[in-house]
């Protein structure tokens, strides 16, 4: 349904999510975090890096309330839903859904925390909810 290609760059992210862990990566030399996940450092390609578990806390950087389904057929009959870009405490942004809250309460800058939602047998998506 999602035609998700888990590859050498993203497999650990999705496997972590299945265990309710939000994995991001950090360059061990510059100590900077990066996202999306990669099989090399997204800060400087030749730097060493490590996987770390994010606190899952952040703020809403931007969002849209979608009245049409996008990406996958999974979203047919789920409109309206909120797609958000979350700025994590560690300083990286990721795109996900903002769930379990009144849509009118969604605003840029509001604090959120991660909640894991199983979409199907294969995918658990780290979503966010307003705290």
């Amino acid at each position: 349904m999602f035609n998700l290609l888990k590859d050498v760059d993203s497999n650990e992210f999705w496997e972590g999510a299945k265990q309710n862990k939000l994995f991001i990566q950090k360059s061990t030399k510059s100590k900077k975090y990066f996202f999306y996940s990669r099989s090399f450092s997204g800060v400087e390609a030749d730097e060493p890096f490590e996987w770390v578990e994010s606190t899952g806390k952040g703020t809403i950087y931007s969002f849209t309330i979608s009245h049409i389904p996008g990406g996958s057929e999974y979203y047919i009959n789920k409109t309206p839903y909120v797609i958000g870009v979350i700025l994590l405490e560690e300083g990286v942004r990721l795109m996900s859904n903002i769930v379990d809250c009144d849509h009118s309460s969604v605003e840029i800058g509001k604090k959120v925390k991660v909640v894991f939602k199983r979409l199907n047998n294969e995918i658990v998506l780290p979503c966010f909810t307003i705290v």
């Binding site: 999602f2 998700l4 290609l5 993203s10 999306y36 979608s66 049409i68 389904p69 996008g70 990406g71 996958s72 999974y74 979203y75 789920k78 839903y81 797609i83 990721l94 795109m95 996900s96 859904n97 979409l119 995918i123 998506l125």
Partner: peptide, 10 residues
């Protein structure tokens, strides 16, 4: 892949 799983109409 993250955008598409999150249902972004792009």
């Amino acid at each position: 892949q993250f955008d598409m799983v999150a249902g972004l109409p792009s």
